[in-house]
């Protein structure tokens, strides 16, 4: 008799437990969460001027002339120097940053040139007498909370913390200069200035 009573009680308790477990009001929480997500694409809000090709996240501009001369973006067109040899010359170069990178952006920017060299006939190599060196000097960084710039020889390192879109803020300037050279042989001279952007 007692055993039956005990068994009946046990079954009843189990049934109650099952019923209450199924009760939807018994969720153990008086708080709830809702998750949201969103994506913003690279380049959103960044407007790169038409025809400008970036090197890394940088656009390169140059200016040949006085402070009133407008800056121009580097293009496939040649910059023509009319007084080479007669007097020293200087081309100002500057780097402008474009981007809204999701993580901090770092790069090393370096400028290099083999200098002016005379275009020789018959495929001959120009001698030292046919060359005029181009040096890079007076690099300056632009003070800004947006950038960390560390000037190096012929270039600089750049770190851009994660930020809202940056549309062409000037990061640094540098001068490409050459001396006067009255002894240069007559002829056609060309020079290339190479701006290299290396990202780690």
């Amino acid at each position: 008799m007692m055993r039956k009573l005990a068994l009946t009680s046990l079954l009843t308790l189990m049934a109650i437990a099952v019923v209450f477990a199924a009760d939807p009001t018994n969720k153990v929480s008086d708080a709830a969460n809702l998750k949201l997500n969103a994506s913003i694409e690279k380049g959103q809000g960044v407007t790169i001027p038409e025809g400008v090709t970036l090197v890394g996240n940088l656009a390169i501009q140059y200016r040949y002339g006085d402070e009133e001369t407008p800056w121009e973006y580097v293009s496939t067109e040649n910059l023509e120097i009319t007084d080479l040899g007669e007097r020293a010359g200087r081309v100002q170069l500057r780097c402008l940053y474009y981007g809204n990178e999701p993580e901090s952006y770092s790069c090393i920017v370096s400028f290099a040139s083999d200098g002016w060299a005379r275009t020789m006939e018959d495929g001959k190599e120009p001698t030292d007498a046919d060359k005029l060196a181009i040096i890079f000097e007076d690099a300056e960084s632009t003070s800004s909370k947006k950038f960390e710039v560390d000037i190096k020889n012929s270039g600089f390192t750049l770190n851009v913390p994660v930020s809202a879109p940056i549309n062409g803020d000037v990061v640094a300037t540098i001068n490409a200069s050459w001396a006067d050279a009255p002894d240069l042989p007559a002829g056609e001279y060309t020079a290339d200035i190479i701006a290299a952007v290396t990202t780690p």
């Binding site: 708080a31 998750k35 913003i40 809204n100 994660v162 809202a164 879109p165």
Partner: peptide
């Protein structure tokens, strides 16, 4: 705004209730 950095964003809204 278009003035946000690129990336994947998440947020969690928590609703707590005391009765």
């Amino acid at each position: 705004s278009e003035e946000y950095a690129a990336g994947d964003y998440t947020a969690t809204i928590t609703v707590a209730c005391s009765a």
